[in-house]
Amino acid sequence: MKKFKLKKIDNKKKTFLYIFMIVVIYAIVMALTSAGIINRYYNGILITVCINLILVVSLNLTTGYLGQLTLGHAGFMAIGAYAAAYFSKTFMTIPQPFSFIIALLIGGVMAMIAGLIIGVPALRLKGDYLAIITLGFGEVIKTILLSMAIIGGAKGYIGIPRVTTFTSAYVFVIITIVFVCLLIKSRHGRAIISISEDEIASEASGINIVKYKIMAFAFAAFFAGIAGGIYAHYMGIIEPKTFGFNKSIEILVMVVLGGMGSINGAVIATIAITILPEMLRSLSQYRTLMYAVTLIGVMLYKYDPRVQVLMCKAKMFCAKINPFKRKEAK
């Protein structure tokens, strides 16, 4: 009889590979920027990718891992954006990197507080009702921001210091992804996943499901708030209508296309969905149309049995060539 041996808790090889990738991607971007290949326009796209990545990975925590459909993620982003912008504009005298970091943290914390305020009553609800209440919440935030003259109302909040750089956005992307990955591979993450699998069994196994739902919600809101802050300090001007239902849906689509509860998938889907429309700029009037057709097409294909067989084969092939596979003890 073979002796059973358990996998290492954290795979060191994999960790080093990821760190290596993080550094290499950053180095490539920096090199291309200084060589002048990445101009202002491309830089903007890269920052947008970073902002979307933070939003998608954070939403993945609630919708992917916790399994609770949320349709108001952009609302948290809005709160973060306005709170961070308000701080930056009020305390212009604080020297730059500190002011920006404090602003982002304030944005994140404010969004987190909003997440708690909505989360506590909302989490009594199940399934679609939670989705609907978060939708309502997102709309409420948008309308309130529209009516507040002190932060510009419908005209937009202008004059926010434009201090977001690729580096700062990239750092927060890494922080978000690492946080979510490490959280998920811990007792807290297991508790969150168990809730999405079976709430009743999870509770019967001693998990305080209300606490964990609120925790996931709060963390997701926090990072959405940070993303909002980065966005505000990149654009220099923010308008409430940017953070409406359509933005929430855009984030959700990236989560779903990437495969819920998969960080790698989410990252790929986010990059693809953010960059593709930019490449098709010449066809800009058909952009929404193509987006819509792609959405429907992907969903239909995903559940086509022929495609599923193909996917299964692809997975088996990947497993075969997986360099991290443990050696079978024969």
């Binding site: 849906i249 959700l252 149309l289 819509a292 057709v293 969903m299």
Partner: peptide, 13 residues
């Protein structure tokens, strides 16, 4: 959720 996304796609379409 896939169904929901499809419905949203239909609306955009």
């Amino acid at each position: 959720i896939s169904l929901l996304i499809t419905a949203i796609g239909m609306s955009y379409l």
